[in-house]
Amino acid sequence: MRARHHFHIEYGGHSVSATVQTGDPGVVEVLVDGKETGNVTTHDDRPVTVHVELPAEPPIPVTVRAMPGPGVPRCLLLVPEEPEPHVMAPRIF
């Protein structure tokens, strides 16, 4: 059964949102400041990464790591040179 889960975080003055659609195949879509900047197809419950950039001068490369399962999906924002990942909060639409 397919389900859509939404996640969000504010980082460095930018809005980063992710939608995880479960199922086989599933999809992870990432929006930065409301614009789709990356997507990837998932298979099974394996974690996937989506590399995107935050618009700055120079652009800041970041990675969204999505764990579609098992159980409830989760998303993290990974920023280079920062040792701890940032947990993206679930959003209800």
Score class of each variant (00 low, 15 high):
residue 2 R to K: 14
residue 5 H to I: 10
residue 5 H to F: 15
residue 5 H to P: 00
residue 7 F to K: 06
residue 9 I to R: 05
residue 14 H to L: 04
residue 15 S to P: 00
residue 15 S to K: 13
residue 16 V to Y: 00
residue 16 V to Q: 03
residue 18 A to S: 10
residue 19 T to F: 09
residue 20 V to L: 06
residue 21 Q to K: 15
residue 22 T to G: 01
residue 24 D to T: 15
residue 25 P to V: 11
residue 25 P to E: 08
residue 26 G to W: 04
residue 27 V to G: 03
residue 27 V to A: 07
residue 29 E to D: 11
residue 29 E to I: 15
residue 30 V to H: 04
residue 31 L to G: 01
residue 32 V to A: 11
residue 33 D to R: 03
residue 33 D to T: 07
residue 34 G to P: 05
residue 34 G to K: 03
residue 35 K to Y: 03
residue 36 E to F: 04
residue 37 T to W: 02
residue 38 G to Y: 01
residue 39 N to S: 12
residue 41 T to D: 12
residue 42 T to Q: 00
residue 42 T to V: 02
residue 44 D to R: 04
residue 44 D to K: 02
residue 46 R to S: 14
residue 48 V to N: 01
residue 48 V to M: 04
residue 48 V to I: 14
residue 48 V to K: 10
residue 50 V to H: 06
residue 50 V to G: 05
residue 53 E to L: 08
residue 53 E to V: 05
residue 54 L to I: 08
residue 54 L to Y: 05
residue 55 P to S: 10
residue 55 P to E: 14
residue 56 A to K: 06
residue 58 P to Q: 02
residue 61 P to H: 01
residue 62 V to N: 01
residue 62 V to W: 00
residue 64 V to C: 08
residue 64 V to G: 02
residue 65 R to V: 10
residue 65 R to C: 07
residue 67 M to S: 12
residue 69 G to P: 01
residue 70 P to F: 04
residue 71 G to R: 03
residue 72 V to M: 12
residue 74 R to L: 13
residue 75 C to A: 15
residue 76 L to N: 02
residue 77 L to P: 00
residue 78 L to R: 08
residue 78 L to K: 05
residue 79 V to E: 12
residue 81 E to T: 05
residue 81 E to H: 12
residue 81 E to M: 09
residue 82 E to C: 10
residue 82 E to W: 04
residue 83 P to M: 10
residue 84 E to Y: 07
residue 85 P to V: 09
residue 85 P to E: 11
residue 86 H to N: 09
residue 87 V to M: 13
residue 89 A to P: 00
residue 89 A to E: 03
residue 90 P to G: 08
residue 90 P to R: 14
residue 90 P to T: 13
residue 91 R to L: 10
residue 91 R to M: 15
residue 91 R to T: 13
residue 91 R to P: 03
residue 92 I to N: 10
residue 92 I to H: 11
residue 92 I to T: 15
residue 93 F to A: 13
residue 93 F to C: 11
